[in-house]
Write a protein that binds this DNA or RNA. Structure first.
Length: 972
RNA sequence: GCCGGUGUGGCGAAAUGGCAGACGCACAGGACUUAAAAUCCUGGGACCGUAAAAAGUCGUGUGGGUUCGAGUCCCACCACCGGCACCA
């Protein structure tokens, strides 16, 4: 042990209070209508003992949420508790402020490691998961966080994933209505005329179909037998559902034995593990997140997230405005419908500069338009591209490649013939999979044209004539842009875009379009340890396979027992091994994919609100109270949306796009369908920064610089650990760990201990401790031997003492409101340093200080709080310390003690120091009375002996007096 | 390449446009101690001075600018960190 003697007996104090809080359920939050037990400190504080308050009768809520962890086998590292400590401090602070705080914790427990372990050892992932959760929970609890453990949840719990599957059914049974711009039940989807039941008689409403049967046993369905009309209608609906099936190529990762979402693939390798991935067509479930692109984008304006995080989401969604333009194919040998190639461009103003076209190699027209002479070259190029992994495609991106198809297109604005090429720098999956190339004003086209000697025509003049127009991609003025029917020459870029787009629309050659980079969410995984889909597959009379939702009554769909967790030899998911499970009595077969890990984390913050509800994923009343809509006393800080949701959400940046985008998407669907009352889930979000190793490098096992919280706790205790994590620097910053730094705050806590404790009784305590087994339940009683320091007296504080206290209250309060934990701690250090010097320490002053300390170092503060309940040792000491903290009817629980208010009047000085500058340079500091007027201050400044030499022989030009701040004498 | 963020002592950091370096670490000196640990006190940006002081000069990545006054605001650049990356 580097630090030698223990600063204070945290090894007894911390378990004592953790047990106390747990016994008392001190941090349990109560839903509207719930009976609040008498004696519970929250009930005592708010006068709600044995009552069943409605939402309106409860104090204003405050929902503080941590990103729940994946309980890995490695246990907690010091990065986890950083955010958890910050939120715990705020939760405790808000409780003291009188809020009804919801502060829950749970487990994001589905995931690959437990499954990979199962593949290796045959141990069921549930067992691994449960062990890991137990370890995580023990570690988290040893830090004294004030979570409401009665709301604990795990995504792997059937009572939980039943509702994950239920939400999936909602997605499955909904479509996005572009007219109302929101999700609606699939029954509101109209069939097109050819599928309608009679012309307009029943408005083609799908509700005429026996849809009610969806909620009945699936066995009863469609006894009448399918018809062509019925399967056509089913196909129509299936095409519109928010959850749908495609056979599109997906990222298959052979090493992981699963497909991955676009977002899980980085630079051609899997984000997890860095394994290579390949493109492979497979049947997959998709979620139609793209329908929400616009709302996901625009609603960012209504929430309080960091600008950089919003920017990341905006970039991910990637909205771009432009136009789609049709180019006719010259000398067309094709049927009319296919004789056009549609391109997407954000720069229709550069249409006159289009000197060639490029199709993605996968574009569906490529084979049709390729001339016989070029056929071989095109086929070869397509084969090359198909062979390339995405990794190679990105790596080789520097050099442009492509092949001419032999065919020409006609530029609609000037009738010019331009060659059509194929090249892999055009992506099939974005826009229309084809572009018009304007080499003069697009970097990629410029490189391509240079490579293949294609013409480059200027059509934009840069604002600065010295700028080279070649490769100029910004806004300027259109030039050389006059055709037989339309001219935009001379127009600034913005106007040129409008004018030419209007013309294209009028001529039927194109239209305004908005494109998004965002793709639909690939939602199925070939894994065992995830939520099974509540979906079965059947065949209709024509032998066609179709899918159907299981009824709600079939939930939860549990995964089958397996002995082998590997995918099958044919590449089918592991669930396919459970033959009996897969096949239902009616011959239907179950979907064997499972949901991705993101599914469970998409809505866990809602389950916390009503974690045990067996009837619903969340009760209406609980939802509206905690999300802040039903309680008139709630603080609504954003008048624009007036729907705060989670008041504070803290977690790492690694979830900046995926989790946060997916969760927002699900929340909006639930909002549209009327299940939740706010359009956004997380009103305020803060990303905690990374904690690096002592060497300033990212912590990793291979570098050997990982700090284990258990080791720190053993040596310095939870309070010191918490304090240090916050003292390190601003929450959002990346900062290196320093175990030496822990000692600093540990010493501070030791000073607090000595400030309150009596030295002689401490010695007696230590002697008693050496002959006692500290593992016994009686050991904490030893703490009663510690007496209050005799310098602490029930006397009125001096003005200086009051000032020190109130300066501390002010600073800590303001810093907590702004989440500046490090400076709040330093303010408490300043206070303690000063209080140590006081000969007589007023009881009232030190007592208030403990309330400030409590959120940061709750165990120590609670223990000392028992000592300051009365300046004399308690007469009823035989009751033990417990009664002091939790006695019914008495407001003596520190955790719920009202936060002190500072009195600004106590902070005013009678004499203040004013710096005096000459020409902006500090020359002296003078003492003046605080209410001195400017003339007096100026005179005093001029009179200063240190200032005078700098004025001699100079002319005083100007005098700046900033009241109570500074004097600056300007001389020449 | 594009977007976002950050550059302040030996280190972590602090500073509504107004005394740069609070608070802490590490370090040095002292007190207590047989000694050590712990604790308490003192010191500290650099330079130049001096027996020791005082005074002075320079100092917040670099170069400009605005201002009586800039770590803070503006412009240009450099470095590092994070994100995106052939998205037309």
């Amino acid at each position: 042990m580097a630090s030698g003697r223990r600063q204070y007996p945290f090894h007894l104090i911390e378990p004592k209070w953790q047990q106390m809080w747990e016994r008392q359920q001190a941090f349990r939050a109560f839903n509207p209508g719930e009976t609040i037990p008498g004696g519970h400190p929250f009930a005592v504080r708010h006068g709600l003992e044995d009552k069943q308050p409605s939402a309106a009768e409860l104090p204003p809520k405050f929902y503080i949420l941590d990103m729940f962890p994946y309980p890995s086998g490695a246990g907690l590292h010091v990065g986890h508790p950083e955010g958890y400590t910050a939120t715990d401090i705020l939760a405790r602070y808000k409780r003291a402020k009188g809020f009804h705080v919801l502060h829950p914790m749970g487990w994001d427990a589905f995931g690959l490691p437990a499954e990979q372990y199962a593949v290796k050892t045959g141990q069921h992932p549930r067992q691994t998961t449960e062990e890991n959760i137990a370890n995580f929970k023990r570690q988290i609890q040893s830090l004294g966080f004030s979570y409401d453990w009665s709301r604990e949840l795990a995504t792997t719990d059937p009572d939980y994933f039943k509702w994950t599957q239920w939400i999936f059914l909602k997605l499955y049974n909904s479509w996005f209505n572009p007219e109302t711009n929101r999700a609606e039940p699939i029954e509101t989807l109209k069939y097109p005329a050819e599928l309608g039941e009679g012309a307009d008689g029943n408005r083609g409403q799908a509700s005429r179909l026996p849809l009610a049967s969806k909620e009945r046993n699936d066995g009863d369905r469609r006894d009448a037998g399918p018809t062509d009309l019925e399967s056509a209608r089913r196909a129509w609906r299936d095409k519109h559902r928010l959850a749908y099936v495609t056979d599109a190529p997906v990222w298959w990762c052979p090493a992981l034995g699963t497909v991955l979402a676009n977002e899980e693939v980085q630079d051609g390798v899997s984000e997890v593990g860095g394994h290579p991935v390949v493109r492979k067509p497979m049947r997959q479930w998709m979620l139609r997140i793209t329908a929400y692109a616009e709302r996901l984008l625009s609603d960012l304006d209504s929430i309080d997230w960091s600008e950089s995080l919003k920017e990341m989401q905006r970039n991910w969604i990637g909205r771009s405005e432009g136009a789609e333009v049709d180019f006719a194919i010259a000398d067309c040998r094709l049927p009319i419908a296919d004789s056009k190639i549609r391109v997407f461009t954000t720069r229709p103003d550069t249409l006159f500069g289009a000197t060639y076209m490029v199709l993605a190699p996968e574009h569906k027209l490529v084979d049709q338009i390729t001339t016989p002479e070029q056929r071989e070259a095109v086929a070869k190029y397509k084969a090359e591209v198909a062979k390339k992994s995405d990794l190679e495609r990105t790596e080789l991106a520097k050099e442009k490649t492509g092949v001419f198809t032999g065919t020409y297109a006609v530029n609609p604005v000037n009738g010019e013939r331009i060659p059509i090429w194929i090249a892999d720098y055009v992506l099939a999956s974005y826009g229309t999979g084809a572009i018009m190339a304007v080499p003069a004003h697009d970097t990629r086209d410029f490189e391509f044209a240079t490579e293949f000697n294609l013409p480059i025509v200027q059509v934009v003049q840069p604002p600065d004539p010295k700028t080279d127009w070649r490769g100029f991609v910004d806004d300027g003025t259109s030039v050389n842009s006059t055709g037989p029917e339309i001219s935009i020459t001379g127009l600034p870029t913005a106007e040129a875009k409008t004018k030419i787009t209007d013309w294209l629309e009028a001529k039927g050659l194109g239209q305004r379009t908005i494109n998004y980079k965002l793709r639909d969410w690939l939602f199925s995984r070939q894994r065992y340890w995830g939520e099974p889909f509540p979906i079965v597959w059947k065949r209709d009379a024509g032998g066609n396979l179709y899918h159907e939702a299981l009824p709600e009554s079939a939930l939860p769909v549990l995964p089958p027992a397996l002995t082998d967790y590997k995918p099958t030899a044919t590449g089918e998911p592991p669930l396919a091994r459970a033959k009996e499970w897969v096949t239902l009595p009616d011959g239907a077969t179950r979907e064997t994919n499972t949901m991705p890990q993101w599914a469970g984390s998409c809505w866990y913050y809602l389950r916390y609100l009503d974690a045990k509800n067996p009837q619903s994923f969340v009760g209406k009343e609980a939802e509206s109270y905690w999300m802040g809509v039903s309680n008139p006393k709630s603080e609504i800080r954003n008048p624009k949306s007036a729907t705060p949701g989670v008041d504070l959400y803290v977690g790492g940046t690694e979830h900046a796009v995926l989790h946060l985008l997916y969760a927002r998407f699900w929340h909006k669907v639930l909002f549209d369908l009327g299940y939740v009352s706010t359009p956004e889930p997380f009103f305020k979000l803060v990303n905690q920064g990374l904690i690096l190793g002592e060497d300033g490098q990212k912590m990793s096992k291979s570098r050997g610089n990982v700090v284990n919280p258990d080791d720190i706790l053993k040596e310095y205790g939870a309070d010191a650990f918490r304090l240090y994590e916050m003292f390190l620097g601003p929450l959002q910053d990346t900062k290196p760990w320093s175990t030496k730094g822990v000692e600093g705050v540990y010493r501070f806590l030791g000073r607090v201990w000595r400030l309150f404790g009596d030295e002689q009784s401490e010695t007696e305590f230590e002697q008693a401790e050496t002959v006692t087994n500290t593992q016994t339940p009686e050991a904490p009683k030893l703490l009663e031997l510690i007496r209050l320091n005799s310098a602490i007296k029930d006397v009125p504080p001096s003005p200086a003492q009051l000032k020190a206290l109130h300066a501390c209250i002010k600073k800590v309060t303001e810093d907590l409101d702004a989440m500046r934990f490090n400076t709040a701690i330093s303010a408490m250090m300043v206070f303690v340093n000063e209080a140590m010097t006081w000969k007589t320490k007023p009881h009232a002053v030190l007592r208030e200080f403990l309330i400030l300390l409590q959120p940061f170092a709750p165990h120590l503060a609670e223990e000392l709080w028992t000592k300051v309940q009365s300046p004399k040792p308690k007469a009823t000491a035989s009751d033990g310390a417990e009664t002091l903290a939790v006695g019914p009817g008495a407001l003596d629980s520190l955790a719920y003690s009202p936060w002190p208010k500072f009195d600004p009047a106590l902070l005013v000085e009678s004499e203040i120091e004013i710096p005096v500058q000459v020409n902006g340079k500090l020359r002296d500091v003078i003492q003046v009375s605080a209410d001195a007027d400017n003339a007096t201050v100026e005179a005093a400044a001029k009179a200063s002996a240190k200032v005078k030499p700098f004025l001699e022989g100079k002319t005083l030009k100007k005098v700046i007096v900033v009241p109570k701040k500074l004097v600056n004498l300007v001389v020449v």
